[in-house]
């Protein structure tokens, strides 16, 4: 474990920027989100969770897959430098691992189909993720439901704890270890530092709400598909895409062709199962025409289908959907209702 003085942070970020395209939490037009930074001053750590999740760094809302004109087809170049993300939260770092099971080549699927999405891979593949532990989780945080917590290092390459006057950094992956080896201006963390970090971690955990045991959730959901519970669960939902678009794990997309007079482009855009058009078929028939069917799909995908396919819930408990929902449809209450049924 390494100790980096806060005085040396500016230097550290500058060194990082020299080698990587660095993303960190920034304030953009009054919204807290991840942005490409050019200096340490750009970083804004005033809020715990960014309002938009960092999935957009690796899986942007609108991604041009290729462009074409009379001269042929061109695939856009990737970023020249590998991506480094400073200030990601543990939940978001874990969400990228989940998305990697979908887009990355190493996804374990029961059907053994291997597919690697090149657009995802070229960004996430050689990225360096610094996840910074949450010392003061929010009331919307429920990462503890997923056997994680505010000081969970899973999903990170380098796990960072802010102990006030310094950052403690610990390599989690091989990439992280490699990076820390070459890091200048840092020393080894003392036993005292480690103790301090442990105290902070304990306090952080104590701030989280009560954990709900999700052991039976998938089995419960399997028996509920045709049950009337979805009427009450979905009643207040207005079917907007705010939850899906701020979600760090929602990854459904649509493909759009944009063309004009001999040239055009194919764009991949975020889509959401909340929209009626999401499942509308060419015939005009919509297998999920009702709001409750769409809400059911979202819950099922996160807490049942993904578990069957990839062995874990497609949710990290970041709580963005809870704070953003215009009608306060709290996913925690939905889960509790399902478990109680």
């Amino acid at each position: 474990m390494i100790r980096l003085e806060k005085d040396g942070f500016k230097n550290f970020i500058e060194e990082l920027i020299a080698e990587y395209a660095v993303f960190a939490p920034v304030m953009k037009d009054g919204k807290h989100m991840f942005g490409n930074i050019s200096s340490v001053e750009d970083i804004d750590s005033s809020r715990l969770n960014t309002e938009m999740s960092p999935k957009e760094i690796f899986f942007p809302h609108s991604e041009v897959l290729f462009e074409y004109d009379e001269d042929g087809i061109r695939v856009a170049d990737g970023e020249k430098k590998p991506i480094a993300v400073w200030g990601m939260r543990g939940c978001d770092a874990r969400s990228l691992r989940m998305l990697d099971k979908v887009f990355g080549g190493d996804g374990e699927r029961p059907d053994n189909i291997k597919f690697e999405d090149p657009y995802w891979e070229r960004r996430y593949g050689d990225s360096l993720i610094f996840s910074v532990a949450c010392n003061e989780p929010l009331s919307t945080c429920f990462c503890n439901w997923f056997d994680s917590g505010p000081h969970d290092s899973a999903g990170a390459d380098i796990f960072v704890v802010d102990i006030g006057d310094a950052f403690l950094m610990d390599a989690v992956s091989g990439k992280g270890e490699e990076f820390l080896k070459g890091l200048s201006g840092s020393g080894k963390a003392s036993e005292k530092d480690k103790k301090k970090a442990a105290v902070i971690a304990e306090e952080a955990v104590s701030l989280l709400g009560k954990k709900t045991d999700l052991g039976e959730l998938n089995d419960k959901l399997k028996g509920l598909f045709h049950k009337p519970i979805w009427d009450s669960v979905s009643a207040k939902c207005v079917n907007c895409g705010a939850c899906s678009f701020t979600c760090s794990t929602c990854h459904c997309f649509d493909i759009q062709d944009e063309s004009r007079k001999g040239r055009g482009k194919r764009v991949r855009i975020w889509d959401a199962c909340m929209f009626p058009i999401f499942t509308k078929e060419a015939s005009g028939h919509n297998p999920r025409s009702l709001s409750k069917e769409r809400v059911r799909q979202r819950v099922m995908h996160k807490y049942s289908y993904f578990v069957d396919n990839h062995g874990e819930f497609l949710c990290t408990g970041c709580g963005r959907c809870i704070s953003v929902c215009p009608v306060n449809l709290d996913i925690r209450e939905v889960i509790r209702e399902v478990l109680a049924s």
């Binding site: 037009d29 207005v238 907007c240 895409g241 705010a242 975020w270 959401a272 009626p276 058009i277 215009p326």
Partner: peptide, 26 residues
């Protein structure tokens, strides 16, 4: 430029009740 096209504005609006919104027509 901040808009993420989640259509929350449209969906909470009691005056916006078209069966199929013009943005959803394809």
């Amino acid at each position: 430029s901040k808009c993420i096209r989640c259509y929350a504005c449209r969906n909470v609006c009691p005056s916006c009740y078209c069966n199929e919104c013009f943005v959803d027509q394809n």
